[in-house]
Every structure is written in structure tokens, then in C-alpha cells.
């Protein structure tokens, strides 16, 4: 017994180090898996507050670009709305005609963006108070941005499309060919469209949009263009390099999308699996 105590006292620094390193490793592993149990995240009130202050300073430098983007988007929406454009914009805007498209859009500001690592996350300045839930899609003016994965009371964390865990339903515009969109961790401007069958017609320059089967994003949101396509697995499937429309290294304004019918769709999908 005495020896055990002596051992513990003698090696207390080593033991403390091993304990702390172990705790840190657990946090790291949790953060790399697509599960919502990570302890250490940037959506807390304190962290969010600091990131917000910091981004409110640095966003001044991008105001020109940001304004230009928003002006272009406004013009696009004006055209879409035509003479129905008399509705006032509130904190949540129902896109188009609510009975036709069940998607509700919340404007948000990106207060942290990172794209240098393999598993990247963004932080946005709206959270549970604004009715944000996990698994909602996030887009920008130019295309898709990611999926909400952790919601704090006033901030949320978004899994960037530049994350090795992400896999999104996408399709080639003008066809019904679908595939899953992933990121291989190299360039922040390129993603891969996988599992596209050999018989599909793939042409360089084709536009890639979000798929009809996606429950996270509305259909027909722009993603990018086909930059290169190769047949892999003995020519049975295509692997397509997609050049993103969205410049992931420079994002300011984002829109979180809520699918009104999400629960209903999930219920029906679960029925199929059960039987």
C-alpha cells in the first residue's frame, strides 16, 4: 500500500499529464466523428460573443464586396418576385410562395470561418432563440455552405461543406442523375461528386445543383460546375471534380433554411425502412 502511494506521489506529474492528454484526445476523437456529442465547440455565449466582436471589426474590411453580393442577390430576388415584392422583410422570410415551397429562410452572419483543415466548421450568429435546429441547411448568395450541427442559445456551429464527414445529395442540372457530394480535403474551391453511374451524360461545364432527394436543402440551389470527370472502378462509376460557385474562403452573409415538411418526410422514409 505504502509503495502504491509512493509511486503515485513520485509520478504525480506524469499521471496528471496522461490524464489531461487522454481527456484532450477524447475531445479530439469526438470532434472528428459526425456525432453531436462534442463538448468543445464555439457556440457558447462567451466564445460566440468574442467571435462576434472580432468579426464585427474584420467585416468592415469586406463591406464593399459584401454589399455588392447583396445588391446582386436583391436584384435577382426582385426579378423573381416581380410585382409581388411588397411584402416586408422580417427576421424570417418565407421564400416564394409558402404553400408551394415549404422552405423558410433565416438570415445570419458568419462570425467564424475556417478552411485550412480537413474537418472545418463555421460559426453563425443565430441559434436556438431564433428557432434554429440541428440538420438545417445553410446557403449563401452563391451556393451551399454547410449543415447546422450544434445549436447554442444565440450561436450555432455549421459543418462546412469543406469537411471530410459531409456527404450531400446533388444532381446534374437538366438531368435526373444524382450523386453524393464530398470533400477530399485538398482545395477549398473543389468538391467531388461520387457514385454517378457510367451511363449518365457528364459534360465538362455542366452545372451541379442540390438534388430533389435532399431534405436539408431546397432543390435547385447552385453548387458548382463540372471541372473534370473520370471513370473509376473499372469504368463503372464517374468521379467528378466540381468547381464551387461559392468562394468558401470569403463568406459573410448566410441563410439558414428550415424545411417545414422535414418531419413528415422522415416519418415516411422510416416507414419504408421498417417494412
Amino acid at each position: 500500500m505504502q509503495q502504491i502511494f509512493n509511486f503515485l506521489i513520485k509520478n504525480r506529474n506524469l499521471l496528471l499529464y496522461l490524464l489531461l492528454a487522454f481527456i484532450g484526445l477524447i475531445f479530439t476523437v469526438q470532434n472528428h466523428s459526425y456525432h453531436r456529442n462534442s463538448f468543445i465547440h464555439s457556440t457558447g455565449a462567451f466564445t460566440g460573443y468574442f467571435l462576434e466582436k472580432q468579426s464585427s471589426v474584420s467585416s468592415y474590411f469586406d463591406l464593399d464586396d459584401e454589399n455588392q453580393l447583396l445588391r446582386e442577390e436583391n436584384a435577382k430576388l426582385r426579378m423573381l418576385l416581380g410585382d409581388q415584392a411588397d411584402s416586408l422583410l422580417s427576421s424570417s422570410v418565407v421564400f416564394y410562395n409558402s404553400s408551394k415551397t415549404p422552405f423558410e429562410v433565416f438570415p445570419a452572419r458568419v462570425i467564424k470561418n475556417r478552411y485550412a483543415y480537413r474537418d472545418n466548421f463555421l460559426t453563425i450568429d443565430i441559434g436556438a432563440q431564433e428557432d434554429i435546429k440541428e440538420d438545417m441547411g445553410v446557403i449563401t448568395t452563391n451556393g451551399i455552405l454547410g449543415v447546422v450541427d450544434k445549436v447554442g442559445s444565440r450561436y450555432s456551429r455549421v459543418i462546412s461543406v469543406l469537411n471530410s464527414e459531409i456527404s450531400l445529395n446533388a444532381q446534374i442540372k437538366g438531368t435526373n442523375t444524382i450523386g453524393s457530394l464530398t470533400w477530399n480535403g485538398n482545395s477549398p474551391y473543389l468538391m467531388n461528386l461520387e457514385d454517378v453511374p457510367r451511363l449518365a451524360k457528364v459534360v465538362k461545364g455542366d452545372t451541379i445543383i442540390t438534388g430533389q432527394q435532399s431534405t436539408t436543402f431546397p432543390p435547385d440551389i447552385l453548387i458548382g460546375v463540372v471541372k473534370d470527370a473520370q471513370l473509376i472502378d473499372n469504368g463503372s462509376r464517374y468521379k467528378i471534380d466540381v468547381q464551387l460557385f461559392n468562394d468558401m474562403t470569403n463568406v459573410g452573409t448566410a441563410y439558414v433554411i428550415r424545411n417545414r415538411d422535414l418531419e413528415e418526410i422522415q416519418e415516411i422514409n422510416n416507414l419504408e425502412e421498417d417494412e
Binding site: 492528454a21 462534442s38 468543445i40 464555439s42 467564424k112
Partner: peptide
């Protein structure tokens, strides 16, 4: 780690 969403990578490296 909380600011960079890196899990515990900074913590492990710094404590080491």
C-alpha cells in the same frame, strides 16, 4: 480549441 472547433488538439499539444 473552443474558438477553432478543433476538439482537443490544442489542449493535447500544449499540455505535452
Amino acid at each position: 480549441d473552443t474558438f477553432q472547433d478543433t476538439g482537443g488538439a490544442h489542449a493535447v499539444a500544449t499540455v505535452t
